[in-house]
Amino acid sequence: MTSVSVSLRAEPAELTMPERHTFRLSLDALNPGDRTVDPRLHRARLLVNGHESTAWSLAVGNGRRPPEWTALPPGERVTMTWSALAAALFPRPGTYDLVLTLDETETPAVRVVVRD
């Protein structure tokens, strides 16, 4: 059971195919409780138009993280940003709804429009 509040931030929300390198996807986790918890964020899954993204799973499940990534104190938040996922997430022009899931938690869809 997830005891942290997670959110997803995508910038920019509108871009063209050549501008995909400017895309940044950030995961933000807040511990609203009164004790330190391990949010186990490496298990977060990203659904792109309903399909799980392998690129995201590899990105979130690998690499070095600050101590807060596995031990988030009460009232604190931890943020991680990835900047090279657009080619995998948006292979062609279109409208993409991104939803982050962690255990039973599911963030509201973040819509990204990619134009030709």
């Binding site: 590899l58 990105a59 690499g63 070095r64 991680m80 900047s83 080619a87």
Partner: peptide, 10 residues
């Protein structure tokens, strides 16, 4: 692209 390594560069 799926297998690209995005380390976060931090």
């Amino acid at each position: 692209a799926d297998l690209w390594h995005d380390s976060g560069d931090t």
